[in-house]
């Protein structure tokens, strides 16, 4: 096997492990963000897009094996995040922190649009505790299940993905600094 492909293989493993491991580290710090997409965003900066999709898809599969089976249903979300992040990296939108905030918002919106139908249809509006609480709040204010889940997802995902994008931007800067 070409050493270049072997290196890519290792990068894929590292990015998958970062997605799952950093999610657990953020739990350890009791952070309000899940940080479970940093690996996918980083892979978009390091790998070609078909491999970014592999990182996203395998992250969901492995997370469903080691954390919770429900992660399997969000496989589409990770794939979309990977595709959007690849486009944003190509458009140089992870160069500075203000740009990465915009990227985070774009990824957050895309992620909410893809994950909200899964939360609403498969899980009846139940998701991670913070999002479930927001959904309940919107439902109690008289909104429909779909509106509540989409609104809740947009708020939570935007905050989460902006944080993940800022950390990824800093990591990309540090890694490129190390390689120079």
């Amino acid at each position: 096997m070409d050493p270049k492909y072997q290196k890519q293989l290792i990068f894929i493993s590292v990015c998958i492990a970062l997605n799952i491991g950093l999610g657990k580290v953020s739990n350890l710090l009791s952070l309000p963000f899940t940080m479970d997409t940093i690996g996918t965003i980083l892979s978009a900066a390091l790998l070609p897009w078909p491999l970014v999709i592999t990182v996203g898809a395998l992250s969901s599969i492995i997370a469903s094996m080691v954390i919770h089976p429900a992660f399997l249903f969000y496989i589409g979300t990770q794939i979309v995040i990977g595709l959007v992040a690849s486009i944003l990296v190509k458009s140089q939108l992870f160069k500075t922190i203000p740009k990465s905030i915009i990227s985070g918002l774009i990824i957050g919106i895309a992620s909410a649009v893809v994950s909200a139908p899964v939360t609403a249809i498969v899980f009846g509006g139940v998701s991670v505790p913070g999002l479930t609480a927001l959904n309940v709040l919107f439902l109690a204010s008289g909104k429909s299940l779909w509106t509540s889940v989409i609104s809740g997802s947009l708020i939570v995902e935007s905050i989460d993905k902006v944080a993940a994008s800022i950390v990824s931007c800093l990591a990309i800067k540090r890694l490129s600094g190390n390689n120079q």
């Binding site: 492990a17 799952i20 491991g21 950093l22 657990k24 492995i62 080691v66």
Partner: peptide, 8 residues
Amino acid sequence: SAAMIPLI
């Protein structure tokens, strides 16, 4: 990947 998660 599974082996690297506990390491992280």
